[in-house]
């Protein structure tokens, strides 16, 4: 029981990252179905651009390769991931959201929707009783739970998350298509791309500080966003040098951290104080010299519209200067 409790605590510290879908099985990325999906999406995007509104009945292919049919524009939507909830609101379709996860806390309005579960447990009865036209699930759950959704005849769009910054655009694009907000989706994507290129331009040629991003620490073990994660690539895009970029699997060690002695440490807001108090970390140069920065981790772990803001926030931390709009 005690072991279980400790594990739960680790999980809690990690749930934001793990939950926000940075961690799908690697084989999904290169699978032929998947590349097919992306191509397919692009084709559909091209096709829909010629028309102002999407035509229903609409048929889309989700990230799992499933074909999802929509008879009419969805009026009742359930989001099973915080990043999707953010996207729905950014698309101006917040009024259609009837169900969400316990972690969907942004924007505040979203909290009016009924909680249908968290990342790992879904309450199928609540989901069914909300009579959703469509359910967006980020494919993070067990195959059993996912199959159960399909078995119950619920119209589910799986948005399998991929470890790349760009996959966020694909998610926004598909949600936009399903909810008949293609134009708004394009706008959001373009804005994000603009921010990204500004940041990348600004970071060009600048000296790259070495960076460590705290996911878990102390007695529960050291965890960080390792090389394969999109968070790691964001650190690179923002002109930083992730010290954990050379390994995979989220696990790090205090010894290695001290050996590499990063210039900058980033940690979630809630963890900063405790991190500073914990033995072992006090000796780090970044801690001694006060270069430990708190960041709203939801900006960098949720593959949603605010991800570009997160990128900018990282740049501003790394280079101690702001980019004006």
């Amino acid at each position: 029981m005690k072991k279980g409790l400790i594990l739960m605590l680790i999980l809690f510290a990690l749930s934001f990252v793990a939950g926000c879908g940075s961690t799908n099985a690697p084989q999904d990325i290169n699978s032929p179905e998947h590349t097919g999906v992306i191509k397919d999406n692009n084709q559909q995007k091209d096709a829909s651009k010629s028309e102002e509104t999407a035509a229903y009945p609409l048929e889309v292919t989700d990230f799992r390769g499933n074909s999802v049919k929509l008879a009419k524009e969805p009026q009742r939507v359930i989001s099973l991931s915080p990043n999707i909830t953010e996207i729905i609101y950014a698309l101006g379709k917040g009024d259609t959201l009837v169900g969400r996860t316990a972690f969907c806390d942004y924007p505040e309005d979203a909290e009016d929707a009924i909680v249908v579960g968290d990342f790992i447990e879904w309450n199928f009865e609540t989901i069914l009783s909300l009579e959703p036209d469509v359910v967006f699930a980020s494919s993070l759950n067990t195959e059993e739970n996912e199959n159960k959704l399909m078995e119950l005849g619920i119209n589910t769009v799986f948005l399998t998350q991929i470890e790349s910054f760009e996959s966020t655009y694909e998610i926004i694009d598909l949600v936009g298509k399903v909810l008949n907000a293609q134009d708004r989706a394009d706008e959001i994507i373009n804005e994000m791309k603009k921010t990204v290129s500004e940041v990348q331009k600004a970071a060009e040629g600048k000296e790259k500080p070495s960076v460590y991003y705290v996911v878990g620490y102390g007695e529960y073990g050291d965890y960080t966003a390792t090389g394969e994660t999109f968070i790691s690539s964001m650190i690179g895009m923002a002109g930083g040098n992730n010290i954990a970029a050379d390994i995979t699997g989220w696990v790090y060690s205090l010894e290695k951290l001290i050996e590499k002695d990063p210039d900058i440490i980033i940690c979630p807001e809630y963890a900063k104080e405790a991190f500073l108090q914990t033995n072992g970390y006090k000796e780090l140069t970044a801690v001694k010299e006060g270069r430990i920065y708190a960041i709203d981790e939801n900006l960098i772990v949720r593959q949603g519209p605010r991800l570009a803001e997160g990128l900018r926030a990282l740049y501003e931390i790394f280079h101690s200067e702001s980019i004006s709009d």
Binding site: G4, L11, F119, I120, W122, N141, T142, N145, W250
Partner: peptide, 16 residues
Amino acid sequence: RDRMDYIMLWTMGSFT
């Protein structure tokens, strides 16, 4: 670790 929570939930048993 990314699947840790599912493993734990499985070991706790459920009829979901």
